[in-house]
Write a protein that binds this DNA or RNA. Structure first.
Length: 601
DNA sequence: ATAGGGTTAG
C-alpha cells in the first residue's frame, strides 16, 4: 500500500485526551492507518502500556492494515499478562508473528508456562533455526531459573547458535549461581568476544571467586585480546575483591594508556579498588582528577575514608559534596555514620544523622538505625545503643540486633551479650559467625557449659565455621592461605617461618591471646593452633619475600582475631614492615608496633 | 539477543 498524506508531526503527544482528539482527527482524514501515524499513537501508548493497554489493543484490532511491526514495538513495554493478550490478538486476526516478535516478547516473559507456550509457538511457526529468537528463548528460560530447559534448547540449537547464544548461557548460568556449568560452556565456546570474556569474569566475581576471575582475565590477555572499559571495570572489581593492588594498578595504567574512557562506572570501580586495597591517597588522586563526580563516586570515596578510620576527612568530604550541590542519598548517610562510628565521633554522628535526615528528607531505614547502634556500641555506650533500638519506629531486624551484639563482644558485656546473642542466633540460624561470637564471649567469662551448648547447637543445625582465608600479594603474584591448610607450594618453608616469627616476637614480649581460640569451634577436637591462622601464614610468607621497610598488604575474609591483631603489631616492629590488613569490615594499618585502629575495632 | 560501579552490624 502507498503512504499518502502528510508525514506526522514529530511533536510527541502528551495526554490521553490529546491522543484521542488526534486519533479521531486522523480517522476523519482517513489517515488512521498511515504507518507513521499509527506508530506515533502507539509509541505514546507504549509509555504507560498497562493503563492504556485496552486502547492500544482496540486501535490494533481495528487497524485496517495491521503489520507485525505495530505489535512488536509494543511488546517490550508491556507486562507479561498484557503481552500474552496482545500476542493472542495477533494470532486471532490472523497476523503471524515475524522475526522480530519473539525477541520482543520473550525477554520479560514469565511465569514459566508462558515461556513454554511461546516456545511451542516458536517451533510451530518454524523459528527453530532463527538465531535471535532462539537466543531470546534461552534468555527467557534462564531468567525463569530453568537452566535445564535452556540447556536443552541450547544443545538442540546446532548451527543456529552464535556467540551471543553461548554468552547468554554463560551469563545466565552465572546469574543462577551455576558458575561451574557456566565455565564448561565457556570452555567449549568456538568463538568468544569481549562480552563473553567479561560475562565469565563477572560470574566469578559475583560468587566471590576473584582469583578465578583474574585467571580468566589473564587467559584473555594471553590470547592477545585487548579489553575495553567493561572488561577493565570487571577486572578492577576482581582485584578489589582479591586485594590485588599491584594487579589493579596494572589495569588502571592500561586504562590510562589505552584511551579507554574513564566513565563514571569505571572510575568508581577504580577509586573503590584503591580504597579497599588500602591506598586511600591514591584513590583520592583518581577521585580529584575526575572532572565530574556523580553521587556514587562521592559515596564511594566517603565510604573508603570511613572504613580506613579517617572520620574527619570523610565528614569534610561530605561537606564539600554538599557545597558542590550534590544531594546525598541513603547510602551517603550510611557512609557518613560509618565514618563517625569507626573514628569514635559519637556526637558528630548523632548530629549528622539528624541533619541529613531533616535537610534532605531521607527516610531513615533499618540500616541507618543499625549504624546508630554501631556508633554508640563501638564507643561503649551500650545504654544509648539500646535506646536507639527501643526508640526506632520499626521492629529491629537481625542486623540491628547484631550490631548491638557485636558491641557487647567488643566491650566484653557478657550479660547483655548472653541475652541478645541467643536472640540473634534464633533470627539468623545459618550464620556461623554469630555462634562463634557468642561462644567466644561466653568462653571469655569461663562459662564452658554454655559454650558447649552453642557448640551442640551448631552441630545440630549443621552450621560450620567459614574457614579463614588470607590473601597476600607479593611482586604482583597473589597467594592465598587457608587456616591450618598445607596446600601452599612452599608450605614447609612458610610454616617454619611462622614458628620462627612467633618465637622472635615472643622474645620481645608478645603473649598469645587465647580468648578467641574458639574461632575454630566447629572443628571439634582438632582445634587449629593460633599459629596456623591464615593471616599469620600470609605474614610469614610475606616476611620471606619482603625486606625491612617494605609494606605487606593482606586481605582476609573474616575479621582479624585478637591474637593475630596483637601478633601483627609485634611483627611490624620487630621485623620492620608496614602491614595493611583488610578485614571483613575495615582496615588495620600496622606500623612500629601500633595499629591505626588504636585497638578499637 | 549477551557485559561493568557504592552501603552498616557478626
Amino acid at each position: 500500500m502507498t503512504t499518502p498524506g502528510p508525514t506526522p508531526s514529530p511533536i510527541p503527544l502528551t495526554t490521553v485526551a490529546e491522543l484521542r482528539q488526534h486519533h479521531s482527527q486522523l480517522v476523519r482524514l482517513g489517515l488512521a492507518s498511515h504507518p507513521a501515524h499509527a506508530r506515533r499513537l502507539l509509541s505514546f501508548l507504549a509509555r504507560d502500556p498497562a493503563s492504556h493497554f485496552p486502547y492500544a489493543a482496540r486501535l490494533l484490532a481495528h487497524h485496517p492494515d495491521p503489520h507485525p511491526a505495530l505489535f512488536n514495538s509494543l511488546f517490550p513495554a508491556l507486562p507479561p499478562r498484557h503481552a500474552a493478550r496482545l500476542l493472542a490478538l495477533m494470532l486471532s486476526l490472523p497476523l503471524p508473528p515475524d522475526h522480530f516478535t519473539f525477541p520482543r516478547v520473550l525477554p520479560g516473559a514469565q511465569p514459566l508456562h508462558l515461556v513454554a507456550q511461546l516456545h511451542a509457538l516458536l517451533l510451530k511457526l518454524g523459528f527453530h533455526a532463527h538465531t535471535q529468537s532462539l537466543n531470546a528463548l534461552l534468555a527467557a528460560y534462564l531468567a525463569n531459573a530453568r537452566p535445564d530447559l535452556a540447556s536443552r534448547v541450547f544443545r538442540g540449537g546446532g548451527d543456529a547458535l552464535d556467540v551471543v547464544s553461548w554468552t547468554t548461557m554463560v551469563g545466565g548460568l552465572c546469574k543462577l549461581g551455576r558458575v561451574h556449568d557456566a565455565r564448561e560452556v565457556f570452555d567449549g565456546m568456538p568463538e568468544r568476544n569481549l562480552v563473553s570474556w567479561n560475562a565469565m569474569m563477572s560470574g566469578y566475581v559475583k560468587v566471590g571467586r576473584f582469583l578465578d576471575a583474574l585467571e580468566v582475565f589473564d587467559e584473555m590477555r594471553a590470547r592477545g585480546v585487548e579489553g575495553n572499559g567493561f572488561v577493565a571495570a570487571t577486572a578492577v572489581v576482581a582485584c578489589t575483591g582479591a586485594g590485588a593492588l599491584a594487579r589493579g594498578r596494572e589495569v588502571h595504567r592500561w586504562v590510562e594508556r589505552s584511551g579507554v574512557a574513564m566513565d563514571e562506572k569505571l572510575a568508581t570501580a577504580v577509586v573503590d579498588m584503591y580504597c579497599k586495597c588500602g591506598c586511600v591517597e591514591e584513590a583520592r588522586r583518581v577521585f580529584e582528577a575526575l572532572p565530574t563526580k556523580g553521587l556514587t563516586l562521592w559515596n564511594c570515596m566517603i565510604g573508603g575514608l570511613a572504613v580506613y578510620g579517617r572520620g574527619e576527612d570523610a565528614v569534610e568530604l561530605f561537606g564539600r559534596m554538599e557545597r558542590e550541590g550534590v544531594a546525598p542519598d541513603d547510602v551517603t548517610l550510611v557512609n557518613v555514620l560509618t565514618a563517625c562510628a569507626h573514628a569514635g565521633m559519637v556526637s558528630e554522628g548523632r548530629r549528622y544523622f539528624d541533619y541529613i535526615v531533616r535537610r534532605y528528607g531521607i527516610d531513615p531505614r533499618m540500616e541507618h538505625y543499625g549504624c546508630m547502634v554501631d556508633l554508640y556500641g563501638r564507643a561503649g555506650q551500650l545504654d544509648e545503643a539500646k535506646k536507639v533500638i527501643d526508640d526506632m519506629p520499626m521492629e529491629p531486624d537481625v542486623g540491628v540486633l547484631g550490631a548491638l551484639f557485636g558491641a557487647c563482644k567488643i566491650h566484653g558485656d557478657v550479660d547483655l551479650g548472653d541475652a541478645i546473642g541467643w536472640r540473634v542466633i534464633k533470627l539468623d540460624p545459618q550464620n556461623s559467625g554469630r555462634y562463634v561470637l557468642l561462644a567466644n564471649l561466653l568462653a571469655s567469662a569461663g562459662r564452658w557449659e554454655d559454650v558447649a551448648r552453642v557448640r551442640r547447637l551448631m552441630d545440630e543445625r549443621n552450621v560450620s565455621k567459614e574457614a579463614g582465608r588470607s590473601v597476600i600479594e607479593i611482586d604482583g603474584e597473589v597467594c592465598q592461605f587457608q587456616c591450618g591448610s598445607l596446600c601452599h607450594p612452599q608450605a614447609e618453608e612458610v610454616y617454619a617461618m611462622a614458628k620462627d616469627m612467633m618465637g622472635r616476637i615472643g622474645a620481645e614480649g608478645y603473649v598469645p591471646d587465647t580468648r578467641d581460640v574458639l574461632h575454630d569451634i566447629a572443628e571439634e577436637e582438632k582445634e587449629t593452633p593460633l599459629l596456623y591462622h591464615s593471616e599469620k601464614l600470609a605474614i610469614a610468607f610475606g616476611l620471606l619475600r619482603t625486606r625491612p621497610g617494605d609494606t605487606m598488604r593482606i586481605t582476609k575474609n573474616l575479621r582479624v582475631c585478637r591474637d593475630c591483631h596483637e601478633a601483627t603489631k609485634f611483627v611490624s616492629r620487630v621485623f620492620e614492615r608496614e602491614i595493611v590488613v583488610r578485614d571483613r569490615n575495615r582496615f588495620h594499618h600496622f606500623k612500629d608496633g601500633k595499629c591505626s585502629c588504636k585497638d578499637y575495632w
